[in-house]
Every structure is written in structure tokens, then in C-alpha cells.
Design a protein around this nucleic acid. Structure first.
Length: 422
RNA sequence: GUGACCAUAGUUCAAUGGUUAGAGCAUCGGUUUGUGGUGCCGAGGAUUUGGGUUCAAUUCCCAGUGGUUACCCCA
């Protein structure tokens, strides 16, 4: 009987929506000024795009997707992330033919069926950017630095940038064998999930929070950065050099591997202590094989995604948001005849570029004035029977508490003049 | 999926095994005649659902639902 929102979803009410507008504007301005262009893709895709793109074994794919059959029994999925759809669009629209390197950004809703908690919803929003086509470390560094700059310009100070390299697929293959060998003797001491990981996706053991497993890792597991081949090492060194050169603070997290299978070489995330246990505000990395995995031509790429809800939480915590109240001129009406006049008046005013609104409740003048005050209106126009008789209107400055009479004849232009003088 | 905590008005929070379940804020109205913010006065509005214990349950017990949070994993 009573409709309520779906678990894990959120209504963004007028008390909050302005924050979203503010941040979205900031994001697009910042990214556009670095040469990124927006891309918007559909909210759903064929399921296979994600199973192939993200990896069947990942948690996202194996237990968190909203998958359903359409009327033609085709399996579709609400997008749980945006890199795969962007790459699909890149391939499908032959963007590589238009430009050897494509710098794209997106802002949109994603869907994952997880248990909601602080900083985690089932429908949530991310913005992100992708550099598709460049194999070079400056692309990696740029992505990291852009996020750093964006967050800094928003007033975030205590950021922690963690970077790591998990190597190309080639050097990782060798490393995984080394890792397997090093952990094998301790296999029985690993937690049950890690024992499973040992066979399915051994790299994920690094994600385990079990202290026993961590101890084993610290003691026996070689770090992946120490087992990179020459090219990977050089790539990573250059990324670090570029970050150093631009005074971008970072720490190397040798144990950071990421949850999506497509990553290669550089991975990174930025965390904030202002968030709860979900402290990653953005995360990303290089994915040199995703395009070909999705049947495109072999194309290197690097990207990052940022959780908007988490970003807004941090900014709220830092009291970054300041509401700038700019309210339209409020028109008070008294009597039926006034309504016609006022309706025409606000139409004309808006045509002249003057924001204006009229009372819609036909309440007493007092109530309408109160409404205007609550709206924070700087100007109020009053038209009642007396005014119509005299062919005028009353224009009141709510701040100075002064009011003047204006002839109805030329009212819109007259008001426009007075208001813009202020 | 597992655990913990929570559920009283629009909201934040009180109270109670037994008559009309209170308050702040918010909303609406009044404070003389057609003028907002502060003050004063007033009004509307609530015990999550189902079962059980009891003469009697909003209160105690069980279950459901919902919320928050942690784990897993991620942004």
C-alpha cells in the first residue's frame, strides 16, 4: 500500500541536489579544461559485456549484478561499472579511427546488488575518465594527477594516494608461479577463503584482511613490484618520476591488487580517512587488454572511477559546500484579475532574463509575503485590486524594506532596469 | 550472503503494562483593516507489520519488514 524506495537507493531532495549540481559542474569543467570529452552510454548492456570485461570470477560479476531477461529472452544487466560500456562504445563507434588517443569522461549511475552500508548504495554514482590509446606512463600519471588536482581544488587535503604495479600479463604470469610456490608451504594456515583464492585467483589473497593471512604474506610472499619485467619496471619508474616531478604525494602499496580482472601495470586508489570503512574515494589503473578482450583491436588504456556519494560525504565533512541563495522575484497576487496580470508579468520578465515566480496558493497577502521571505526573495512584486485600479504594481525590496510604485504599462522593462541596477 | 544495533508526529528526541503518548524544530492559522524575518497565541499531525504472554501491550517475548553499521568486496 505504501510505496517506498528500493533498498539501497536514495532520493536526492532539493536540500541536497544543489550539491550534486555543484560537483558535477566542477567535474565537467575541470576535465574539459584538460581536453576530456563526455561520453554517455546506456544504463544497461548485454550481460556478456560485463562477464567478459570484468571477469567471471570477480565478486562484482559473480554475485552483485542486476541481471534480467528481456521479452526476447536476452540476458541484460544494469551496468555495475562504466569502463566496459565505455570501451564497448569506443569499439562500436570506431573512435580509434577518429583519434589515436581518446580522452573520455563520464558521470552516471551504476548498480550493484550488495548489502548497503556507509558510502555504499545499490544504485550509486560514479564519474570517471579513460585515456584510450596511449601505452605511455605519462597517461597513467596524468590520470592520477588530474584526480589529485580535482580533489585539491575541492578543498580535500588529507588524501592518501596509493599506487602499485601489478605488471603486464606477461610478467604477472611468471610472478604468479613464484607466488604460488612461496605460499604453498603455508597453504594450510591460510583462511578458507584464501585457500579458495589460492586456486581461483591467487592474487586476491593480498586483499584478505585476516591477520593470519597477512602475516603469511608479509613473511613469505614476494612483492609483485619486485618481480616485474624490464619494460614494466621502466613504465612504473616513469610514472613515479612524473609524480615526483610534480610534487604529487603518493605511497607505494605493494600489496594493493584490485578487484577487477582487467587491470595491468599501474593500479592506484585515493583514500580519505573521513570516510568509514569504505575509505576509497577513487580507484583505477591501466588495462591494456580490455579493448582486445572485448573484440576490439589491441589498444592500451588507463582510467579511474570516483564514487560520487563518497566524494560528497568527504566534502560535507569538510564543509566545502556553501549554498548560494539566489531566489527569483516573487509575485504576490490578490484577486482573480491580478492573477492574469501577474502571470503575464512573470512571463515577460523571464523573457527579459529576470528570474521570477508567482504565488500559486492564492493565500492571504501575509502568507504570500511570508513565503517570499522564506524563499529568500530579494524582490517582491505585489499586484492587487488597488494596483489594477491605479494601473500600477508595487515593487518591494525585501532587504531594504522599501517599496515603490511602477506603472503597469512598461513594468517588465522598468523592473528589469531597477533590479539590474542593484 | 553473515553479524551487531535500531524502529514513537514531516523531523530530532521524550514517556508509559492501564483514561486525552509529550516537547523543540518544521507546517498551517491568528496577533484588527492589504506587507515577510523576531516575539506572543493557537491548530493539525505519531507508537512499522503479524503473532504470542496478559484482564489490559506503544511498552514484555517471537517472527517479518525497514533502517543504520561492520564483514566479504568495491567507488
Amino acid at each position: 500500500m505504501k510505496y517506498r524506495r528500493i533498498k539501497g537507493t536514495k532520493d536526492i531532495l532539493p536540500t541536497e541536489s544543489w550539491k550534486w549540481q555543484f560537483i558535477e559542474k566542477k567535474i565537467s569543467e575541470t576535465l574539459e579544461s584538460s581536453g576530456y570529452k563526455e561520453i554517455r552510454t546506456p544504463i544497461f548492456e548485454v550481460t556478456q559485456l560485463f562477464t567478459r570485461g570484468i571477469g567471471e570470477e570477480t565478486d562484482v560479476v559473480s554475485k552483485e549484478m542486476y541481471t534480467f531477461l528481456d521479452k526476447g529472452s536476452k540476458s541484460l544487466t544494469l551496468r555495475p561499472e562504466l569502463t566496459a560500456p565505455v570501451i564497448r562504445a569506443y569499439i562500436e563507434n570506431n573512435l580509434n579511427q577518429i583519434n589515436p588517443v581518446n580522452k573520455l569522461y563520464y558521470i552516471g549511475s551504476l548498480f550493484r546488488q550488495e548489502r548497503p552500508q556507509k558510502g555504499r548504495l545499490r544504485q550509486f554514482n560514479q564519474f570517471g575518465l579513460e585515456i584510450i590509446g596511449s601505452p605511455n606512463p605519462e597517461a597513467d600519471a596524468e590520470v592520477i594527477r588530474i584526480m589529485y588536482d580535482l580533489f585539491s581544488s575541492l578543498g580535500i587535503t588529507d588524501m592518501n594516494i596509493k599506487i602499485n604495479s601489478i605488471g603486464s600479463r606477461e610478467s604477472r604470469k611468471d610472478y604468479l608461479q613464484v607466488l604460488e610456490k612461496s605460499l604453498k608451504p603455508s597453504f594450510n594456515n591460510l583462511c578458507p577463503t584464501c585457500q579458495k583464492r589460492f586456486y581461483k585467483n591467487i592474487l586476491r589473497i593480498f586483499d584478505c584482511k585476516n591477520s593470519e593471512c597477512q602475516k603469511i604474506l608479509d613473511e613469505y610472499a614476494p612483492a609483485i613490484v619486485d618481480h616485474l619485467n624490464e619494460e614494466d619496471t621502466e613504465h612504473f619508474e616513469t610514472v613515479k618520476k612524473l609524480l615526483n616531478f610534480t610534487n604529487t604525494p603518493y605511497t607505494i602499496e605493494k600489496k594493493m591488487v584490485r578487484g577487477l580482472d582487467y587491470y595491468t601495470r599501474t593500479t592506484f586508489e585515493i583514500t580519505s580517512s573521513l570516510l568509514g570503512s569504505q575509505d576509497a574515494i577513487c580507484g583505477g589503473g591501466r588495462y591494456d587488454h580490455l579493448v582486445e578482450d572485448l573484440d576490439g583491436s589491441k589498444t592500451p588504456a588507463v582510467g579511474v572511477a570516483c564514487g560520487m556519494e563518497r566524494l560528497i560525504m568527504v566534502l560535507d565533512e569538510l564543509s566545502v559546500f556553501k549554498e548560494t541563495k539566489k531566489s527569483p522575484l516573487f509575485c504576490v497576487t490578490l484577486g482573480d484579475k491580478a492573477i492574469e496580470k501577474v502571470f503575464k508579468l512573470i512571463t515577460d520578465l523571464k523573457e527579459l532574463g529576470i528570474p521570477a515566480e508567482m504565488d500559486l496558493m492564492r493565500r492571504s497577502i501575509k502568507a504570500q509575503m511570508r513565503q517570499a521571505g522564506k524563499n529568500n526573495a530579494h524582490w517582491v512584486a505585489i499586484i492587487g485590486e488597488n494596483e489594477i485600479e491605479k494601473n500600477i504594481l508595487v515593487l518591494k525590496n525585501m532587504v531594504k524594506k522599501e517599496q515603490i510604485e511602477i506603472s503597469l504599462e512598461n513594468a517588465p522593462a522598468e523592473i528589469a532596469k531597477i533590479i539590474s541596477l542593484k
